[in-house]
Amino acid sequence: MSLDNQQQERRRPDWAALAIAALLMVVSVVIAWSTASHGAGASYARVGPTTFPYVIAVAFFGLSIWTVFEAFRGDFPAREKQEISPILWIIGGLAAQMLLLKAAGFSIATGLLFAATARAFGRGPLWKTIPIGIVLSFVVWIIFAKGLQLSLPAGPLEHLLF
């Protein structure tokens, strides 16, 4: 353990960890600022609705400083290289589902999410996986919306058959 530390101390500071420290500081300020903007609301408890938020804001402040120290000491675990494109595919899939859910209905929106996730794991092509996803989602929609009365949004595809 001590050996690792010595090696890392010679490295430059961990910039990602410093970014996290900055983020924690931002959270601290946002909580404190948002809490300060509304009144304390006097009560018999003396511990009002603003007490906990302030405590947590102070804690974030402290954690931010602590993180800066650890960033310089190199205490964060080593990270292997990761690819960014699979993450973008998953984000894209979730965003597409979110935006299309009301308009296109559950099956089409979720089918796109299915295909995008498969693509993130290197499975394609999309013209094959999108229909697979839509058909699968439609079967799921029939089971849960029609069979078990879950309220899942219906779109053109669902209206076509029901």
Binding site: I142, I143, K146, G147, L148, Q149, F162
Partner: peptide, 16 residues
């Protein structure tokens, strides 16, 4: 289980 469930529930649910 899903298939079984859907058959049972489908039979019990009101016609759409």
């Amino acid at each position: 289980q899903f298939v079984l469930a859907s058959i049972i529930a489908g039979a019990l649910a009101l016609p759409a």
